[in-house]
Design a protein around this nucleic acid. Structure first.
Lengths: 342, 342
DNA sequence: CGCCCAAATGTAAGCGCTTGCATTTGGTGA
DNA sequence: TCACCAAATGCAAGCGCTTACATTTGGGCG
């Protein structure tokens, strides 16, 4: 089938309506700069011809693309995907579309993606976390691309942020865990390299232990990829060691789910033999058995607020404030007092 | 902070290298049309200036955007997100980026998004399922935008597809369930309106029952939104009715998870009191207790193949073939023989 | 009944790139 | 050595839109 004659352009509409292209353009972008009679005529022509503006041309002439970019580690688990959905919904309302890239937790890939997005002329960018080369922030600033960092929070980061205090959240959870009487603690953290969020969580645990006067070497710490099987593997290794912990904290719910699965495979009861906690409060946290004690994170709100923060910047606001979201500990069955005498 | 002088353009590079813009352009897009000495000089200028091409301009001049669009129902659960990730990875390798829209299962929103993507000049579009107005397909064809439908399969759909046979998959699962001896079947389907995949699954169940000579009114059929609580609610209503089913099939794993949670809240044992099955084999299927019998769907492969199918079309291949993916039933603990005598 | 001014509209210059065609270059064979 | 040809490069015309600036229009007012 032959591709039809190319789509109608602004000029076609102008001709059909008997006005200049400038008028048509104004009708579309700033309707009340044009008198009603004319506007009607133009609009009639528009939908009679089935005209749709060409965004590339518009982007080029107007120097804005009505497109926002986002680079996230992965969409494989619901955790980023969910906030991204909320982010996207909010943008769509403002007429923006979302261009996504994923980095697979690789800083180099992330940098590439960012450059790519900038080359595509996105009007703003959503990033996850703060930790990346200063050059990247320079680059972004140099190109005048508004940026917001999510899943993290700081008053004085290189760009505005919308997120929560990873350190504090994990510290609180750890304190809660300690208050149950646990002394030997395992923590299966996410990979911390280039990941300030994971680092924050580790530091939170350490701070809580320190505050409780528990010697640092009581903490069994390991880093895992963010997936089920990694959780399972590390859980097994920790539990197989000479003095297994009475509770294993996990860097997120997915790792915790892996740990849980492994516990059941090893015939260990949770929380009878060992307690387990997660982070994120994804849906699965309430579905697995026993239900998971974890840290609730307002994913949807984070996505929405991030969008608004970005939009504000795009609209030219100076000194856009970062948004600090509250997390809270959700106590469920997977955490209990240790039974074995230490 | 003042936005710096605008980014270097092709012309700047040309000037710096002492060649014409045409040569620079060729260096970038078709390097071996340019002699090595020149190429080196140009490349040096390129990274000395930190030049990055402007995609809008390129899109406009070359009439391709190196951008692919996708409209999916939602990224809230991992099911679409996961395949989307695979789709995206594959595209990235070919230099494309992904522009995403989500429809929230609303046909009108979907149509809007599609038009939007076309206006943005995407080189191809990924859609979920076949069912939508014929005008949409006309529109796409008229604009010459290659399209592929995923999560569904047909030899002779309006566009090539990459997916599996929903009807057959669910029919097989139902047959398996029947072979366990179940007679009173409940099916919590997904909403079927405008959703050929959900419809296919319903038809599959019905076909299997018919083949087994089980009267149609033995089937307790309901449609639910695709979320946990909907699964829970419908599960409760079915089980509270006078003659509760001995097995409840669910339109997907998320609904099944909801059913499972509700079962435990009602003190019903699975599969002792009632069996439950899902569809998709998401990660959570193996994590919940009891593990869920479900239909495995190769999400990653679907995403990858969809990308390749689309790319083929973009490269001008005629008559691109649809890809039929195999599903298979994964038997886990949630399905067993009925214990109560019918 | 003109004049003046603001509102409405038109004119046309780009935005940064690709590409068909024209021109130049350099090597080859006679 | 020179004509000839392919390869390398340059020229310049757009691609479809926005927008600063110029021009026209039409009403209110003196």
């Amino acid at each position: 089938m032959a591709k039809s004659q190319s789509a109608p352009t602004l000029e076609d509409v102008a001709k059909a309506a008997g006005v200049s292209t400038a008028t048509v353009s104004r009708c579309l972008n700033d309707p009340n700069r044009v008198i009603e009679a004319t506007r009607k005529r133009v609009m009639a022509a528009v939908d009679q011809l089935g005209y749709t503006p060409n965004f590339a041309a518009r982007a080029m002439a107007a120097k804005r693309s009505l497109t926002i970019g986002a680079v996230i580690p992965t969409m494989n688990n619901a955790i980023f995907a969910r906030a991204l959905q909320a982010f996207q919904d909010q943008l769509a309302q403002a007429g923006y579309m979302l261009l996504v890239g994923s980095s697979a937790y690789d800083p180099v890939a992330e940098r590439e993606q960012i450059r790519n997005l900038v080359a595509r002329g996105v009007d703003g960018i959503l990033l996850v976390g703060f930790e990346r080369e200063p050059e990247t922030y320079d680059y972004l600033k140099r190109h005048g691309v508004p940026t917001v960092a999510a899943w993290t929070y700081s008053e004085d980061g290189p760009v505005p942020s919308v997120g929560f205090d990873n350190h504090l959240a994990m510290q609180s959870l750890t304190e809660a865990v300690l208050s149950y009487g646990h002394q030997r603690i395992g923590f299966i953290a996410g990979k911390t390299e280039g990941n300030d969020r994971a680092k924050g969580r580790v530091d939170g645990v350490i701070a809580a232990l320190a505050a409780a006067g528990i010697p640092r070497d009581q903490l069994i710490l390991r880093e895992a990829d963010y997936d089920i099987s990694a959780g399972a593997i590390h859980f097994r290794e920790m539990m197989d060691a000479p003095h297994p912990p009475t509770v294993i904290l996990c860097g997120n719910d997915v790792i915790a789910a892996g740990a849980m699965r492994q516990a059941s495979r090893m015939g260990l009861s949770v929380p009878g033999d060992v307690s387990i906690t997660g982070f994120d409060d994804m849906e699965l946290a309430q579905i697995i058995t026993p239900a998971l004690t974890t840290v609730y994170v307002p994913h949807d709100e984070m996505g929405q607020r991030a969008a608004r923060t970005l939009l504000q910047q795009i609209e030219g606001a100076e000194d856009v404030a970062s948004v600090k979201l509250a997390t809270k500990i959700v106590f469920r069955a997977s955490l209990a007092k240790p039974t074995s005498v230490p």
